[in-house]
Amino acid sequence: MLSRVAENLYWTGRYVERAENTARLVLATSQLHMEAGGKARLPWAELLRIMGLDQHAPLAALGNEDGPAIRYLTEDEDNPSALITSLRQARENARSVREMLPSEAWESLNGLYLMAKEHLREGRSDADRNQTLRDIILQRMVLAGILHETMSHDVAFLFVRLGEMLERIDMTSRIIDLTTATRQADEDGESLGNSAGWMNVLRALGAYQMYRRHVGVQVVPQSVIAFLFGDNHFPRAMRYCLNLLEESLGQLPLPAQTRGPLRALAPHLRTDDIHDPESLHQRIDQLQVDLGKLHQRIYDQYFASRQRPIVAEAEQPQA
């Protein structure tokens, strides 16, 4: 596998996953909005901070209205993390490696981008937009199915999956962090938030049903956090993603090189010491810092080799 191709596959996975989770995040936020009776303004500044966009977003221009902020997160092509930008990036990355992917996968991703581009634009009603976001999530599932079921689970597949899992941990943690934002919208400042807020997070992640079946009917903040951080079986739980990351990296050449940063992540998924919003928020921050380190190690190990000077490369022992 060419280093360049591996990198493009990895970013295809990351951007597709980011697009899906952005759709989930926006859906969850607008859900909260409705539950607040539409009166309470959503804390967009917080949401943008969670998305890591507080440095970039023209917050003043967005005002405190919902519409402009939602459009910024979904359809604004100048926003490097907007849903449409993520899909475009995923498509561009996949286009440059399309000979590595099943042709249906490319067709599906291309169709997903074109569909999003057509439907995510100004002037649509909230209902239309939410339907489009749900369609995007569904079409992304079709793409995931095509990859999983019609592509050999070879090195190319592993790089897509690495990108997906790394991004999913990152985005799941951001969606959980949304509770910090909603707590501030609420009156109660000490607790981990109300059960309605957490139920909403579970719904956003498609996790509500599985939580009820495997944890309980009561939506208890600590239990939800334990489930989304530490469950080994639910595919959007961070522990599940970390297990897959470990398994995937173990199948690539020179797995020892990534073992250190991988192991540094595991302790962050223990949640028995999380009792208040502050400790939750801190935990998520640490997790994201260490995820960044793992990304950097993957980059250095597998992608950066093409940047090395030719002489140095030629002198390396063959691997």
């Binding site: 060419l2 280093s3 360049r4 080799s305 093409r306 490369e313 030629a314």
Partner: peptide
């Protein structure tokens, strides 16, 4: 692409891959 290839001192052409040349 051109940058994916290199030629060593023995005139062999290699691709840069995730597992080395």
């Amino acid at each position: 692409e051109g940058a994916d290839l290199f030629v060593d001192e023995n005139d062999f052409v290699y691709m840069r891959t995730v597992a080395g040349p």
